[in-house]
Design a protein around this nucleic acid. Structure first.
Lengths: 156, 156
DNA sequence: TAGATTTCTTAATCTACATTAATGTATTTA
DNA sequence: TAAATACATTAATGTAGATTAAGAAATCTA
């Protein structure tokens, strides 16, 4: 249970790495993401204080996601092999978030996904640049920008 | 651990139901899905033999998903409260499938998602109508149909 | 604090996929 | 087995969001 400090932009895990770990976030903010063949980033999750950021692959397999720090952070690396540490409740919560995310991606428009995001994670909005919100929502920064101004106009 | 028989089209759970259960599939095929405000169905998962189909909400909360049978099936209902029955390995496997699904939905085209689906679940294809595959992929049946004929043409 | 870099916005054009509609073919069910 | 219903295909048209490009504002960094 060693706490370590990481600085903004520090990369903790790259796609393809073996023996990957989970990271419990004490303070700061991490993210996990993929990079597609066109070089575009797709954010899988944001991990603020209290969250565990991990790639859900066995430590024996090459991992799928990149993990880096969006803010200077204090984190606790956890070996994936230590199953006794697994917090089942957090696990179930996470799977619910993912279920919701899949449903949103399949059935909701970009505007609705944005509305949902800001009401679910209001604090994340202030801490990360817009293009990362866009990346999480599965749209381009340009689309998010115009969606926001449309939203503003329609509210006044 | 009582086995029960259900017939094709039988509904096991409706959105909003309380005290929802998990269903272990002995034989046959279940699915879970949502219906959006426009009345459109979005399939969350297919559950063939060996799979557990569940809505990842606490049994105290109204559930999010519908569950029904796509084939006559034999299933075992499991109380969600009995955490001792939870098969952690299956849990981790499921979460990985969801991670993959989110990444696919965010970064891959309809064609790529289809290719990925048929290579991952080749047996499901033969057992369900095309429009349900489309629903799982997050596209319309018409889009899937034309995507398939394009694929055929480009392979010859 | 000046220059570089990152971030955000706006607007024109493009494209993947949705929608609508028509037709044909299976599959149910009476 | 006839009629009804479910399913699949094709094509025309529409649209949400992508792409490209350019400029402005904010934030780093030397």
């Amino acid at each position: 249970m060693k706490k370590i400090k990481v600085v903004k932009k520090q990369i903790l895990q790259r796609k393809g790495d073996l023996y990957s770990k989970s990271y419990k976030v004490e303070s700061g903010l991490l993210r996990s993401y993929t990079i597609d063949e066109k070089g575009k980033e797709h954010i899988f999750m944001f991990g603020p204080e209290g969250w565990i950021v991990t790639d859900y692959v066995s430590p024996k397999e090459p991992c799928e996601l990149y993990i880096d720090a969006l803010e200077d952070s204090v984190i606790i690396p956890i070996e994936k092999t230590s199953t006794q540490d697994i917090d089942l409740k957090k696990f179930i919560k996470r799977i619910r978030v993912l279920q919701n995310r899949v449903i949103m991606l399949m059935s909701a428009s970009a505007v609705d996904r944005y509305e949902h995001f800001i009401s679910t994670y209001p604090n994340i909005i202030q801490r990360v640049p817009q293009h990362m919100i866009a990346s999480y929502l599965g749209i381009t920064p340009e689309a998010l920008s115009s969606l926001k101004s449309q939203r503003l106009r329609s509210k006044q």
